[in-house]
Design a protein around this nucleic acid. Structure first.
Lengths: 213, 213
DNA sequence: ACCGGGTGTTACCCCGGGTAACATCGAGGG
DNA sequence: CCCTCGATGTTACCCGGGGTAACACCCGGT
């Protein structure tokens, strides 16, 4: 066995361990699971990030392809949006490990900015940007809006999907509707509630007077 | 100096180091900056998470209060939304350190689910949920929608704000407009583009036929 | 029979979080 | 005046994880 098949079975082992121990699994543990020792892992993947990257790629390529396909489905726009949302949620629902890798790729040394979206999610954001840019007539601000929305929608679905996966408050279908409704301006269309703005929620006393932060 | 003032100056030191070295700063470095050694830090904060939590709290309480106040401003709904968005973006723009702590609190051992939003952001999400629930008439699905939207909007602003902060594609005002437009259903209202759906983006060959992932 | 290269090993380095055990200093009581 | 006690600080260490150097082994080719 030269290179490729070996790599595969190492990735399989890593997969098992990460599924068991979470994304913080140690290289020692992975090597042990594979029945070998650390240096071999390092020979194959360079460093830990290399391993994680390979794993991520393997797992997310399917999801990414599915989302991309959904974005190009010949449907009414609302239906297409729902289809994309459903595709994503179905993907993370079916394989929580994928989800883990998607959202917790490398707890390394990020400077803190530009890392809110993990690499895999950034690819999804780019797909959405491209789709919006190609399919929707947004006038002069086209580019800016498409990029901002691509990121924004991805982040929205990430956070909402994370919550949904954690606490399962409703069926997938309803969740898709809830998010599509948000994207569809239902926040703008809904009426005011009569008991609108109460004086204060009685929390800390008068901290609200500091808009400088 | 009994406890409180000491704590304060330790936090100040930690602040300086994290501002300089990023959120991955070591306890050794922080202790050195404070002119003392590790065990003292541990006596005061228990463990690293304790320190980070204290720091986070100190920094985010202002932002959180500001967002909360903005959510209760007596304005038209669209104006209120813009005001909240602007408040958040202004906050992270003014103090990048706050932003770092906000989004990179503890690269610890999370199991991977339920951690897409850092604690501080979860508080913001709860504020939004409460505000939506109190102010908007959403019918029977009220609770579900408010919660899903709270998380979703927070994630959206996180991801979009992260991108904006990183690459500064436009003024803050325009960014606020772009996000408010998204929330306002402009995606639904815009027209189709003539050259809508091309056959295929000519990437990998025919991976789109696998909807199982 | 010998050599070279891929596969594997042991044993180590460095660094970071966390802690045990000792030093020191100031305040209060005999 | 000295002695003890508790707080504050220190040194020196443990543990575990990423990463690597150096050596052992096995096997096909000449």
């Amino acid at each position: 066995m030269s290179a490729e098949p070996r790599r595969e079975q190492l990735l399989n082992a890593a997969d098992r361990v990460i599924q068991r121990d979470g994304p913080g699994a140690s290289m020692n543990a992975i090597a042990a699971e594979a029945g070998i020792t650390k240096p071999i892992l390092y020979r194959h993947f360079g460093d830990r990030n290399g391993l994680i990257r390979a794993l991520t790629e393997r797992h997310t390529s399917g999801l990414l392809a599915a989302v991309r396909a959904a974005l190009n489905e010949p449907l009414e726009r609302r239906d297409r949006v729902e289809h994309v949302l459903d595709t994503y949620l179905a993907g993370i629902e079916a394989r929580p490990q994928v989800y883990r890798l998607l959202t917790h790729p490398e707890p390394g040394d990020p400077t803190g900015v530009g890392h809110a979206l993990a690499p895999a999610l950034r690819q999804i954001a780019e797909e959405i940007t491209r789709a919006v840019d190609n399919q929707v007539d947004l006038g002069a601000d086209r580019e800016l809006l498409a990029e901002a929305w691509g990121r924004g929608i991805t982040g929205m679905v990430l956070a909402a999907g994370d919550w949904w996966l954690e606490s399962r408050p409703c069926s997938r279908t309803r969740m898709v509707q809830a998010l599509a409704d948000l994207l569809w301006g239902r926040l703008a269309a809904a009426g005011d509630l009569p008991t609108a703005v109460l004086p204060a929620p009685a929390a800390e006393p008068a901290t609200g007077a500091d808009p400088a932060v």
